[in-house]
């Protein structure tokens, strides 16, 4: 693991993000359990891996287990494993995730999804670090660091009694709070550029910058799905963009841009054919010129190149439609 790998995975320069990183780096050096909290999609698993790969256990396994995806009757088998013949279908030895993570880190995601029975089994293990695989004659002592994560309000779960307080104490020796994306909007340009770079690399495409208006829009969204939602949005916009700049669909007719007259969805039968055609043509021209201005951020030369027209000719058209390129430069 290199510094480059860290920069590749933990992206952000905002104060709130840098504070979180400093805490994370400190936590990596102590061999204590960490409870990682934060909203869905904010990067809890990335933070867990960062703790592991920055810790002295970095050369050993990192084993994630999504507790929310485990059927309740399989939890003990999954955690502790079984010996051959432990039960009818146990045809061979199966190491549980604790054994798989030996010497390294076990990451228990969605810890709040564990049933009461599963919480007891995990608590028993955390109390002395020993466990007995199903069908084993004697217990095994584990050498594993436990990291757990939740997007749920554990304080509420504790109050309701759906999460054991004694298990919470064991897991919450250290708590790392991963900030929501809306708490660090200044990181969005970096994150968006990273997504475009990765997507371009993945699909063998040329990288393109985001349109300033789209970037402005991205920075003003609440992003309830956090980084995962932003990634999907930017990736989609990049893959579907035709112009020189990446335009997020929602901002093509943004609230700051001049609104073109809309063509009627159906041609009016009360108009003479030639008049109706002329109106539709004007509406098309206006919409297309506005779109060109948005794509080029008000750069007439670039817009002319995109449209395959001479700059002078495009300038005349813009003037005829009353479209001022300067209004599209406001976000720069």
């Amino acid at each position: 693991m290199t510094v480059a790998a860290l920069e590749h995975c933990l992206i952000g320069t905002s104060a709130v993000f840098r504070t979180m990183l400093q805490t994370l780096e400190k936590m990596a050096t102590f061999d204590a359990p960490v409870l990682i909290t934060g909203e869905t999609g904010c990067g809890k698993e990335v933070a867990a891996r960062a703790i592991h790969y920055l810790s002295p256990r970095r050369d050993r396994p990192f084993v994630p287990l999504n507790c929310g995806a485990l059927p309740d009757h399989l939890v003990e088998n999954e955690l502790f494993g079984h010996r051959r013949g432990a039960y009818t279908d146990a045809r061979e030895h199966h190491p549980g995730v604790i054994a798989q993570a030996e010497g390294g880190t076990l990451f228990l995601d969605e810890i709040d999804a564990l049933s009461a029975k599963a919480q007891v089994a995990l608590l028993r293990f955390l109390q002395d670090g020993s466990y007995r695989p199903l069908g084993a004659a004697s217990p095994t002592q584990a050498n594993v660091r436990i990291l757990a994560a939740t997007h749920a309000n554990l304080a509420l779960a504790l109050e309701k009694g759906s999460f054991r307080a004694d298990l919470h104490y064991r897991l919450n020796v250290l708590e790392l709070r991963v900030p929501a994306l809306r708490q660090r909007p200044e990181d969005i340009p970096l994150l968006a550029s990273h997504v475009i770079r990765e997507t371009a690399g993945r699909y063998g495409l040329q990288e393109k910058p985001l349109h300033p208006q789209s970037l402005d829009w991205l920075m003003r969204q609440p992003w309830p799905g956090n980084i995962r939602e932003l990634e999907n949005c930017v990736q989609r916009a990049f893959l579907l963009s035709d112009g020189a700049l990446v335009m997020v669909r929602e901002t093509r007719l943004g609230d700051d841009a001049p609104q073109p007259p809309r063509a009627s969805p159906e041609p009016s039968t009360s108009l003479h054919f030639n008049t109706a055609r002329q109106q539709a043509l004007l509406a098309f021209e206006h919409a297309h010129l506005s779109h060109l201005m948005q794509l080029s951020a008000g750069n007439v030369t670039q817009a002319a190149r995109l449209a395959g027209k001479e700059r002078r000719s495009l300038g005349k058209l813009l003037k005829a439609h009353g479209i001022e390129p300067a209004r599209f430069r406001m976000a720069q």
Binding site: H8, C9, P61, F62, P64
Partner: peptide
Amino acid sequence: AADTARGIARW
């Protein structure tokens, strides 16, 4: 070392 495909790709 051991990890998932995602972890291996990233780390």
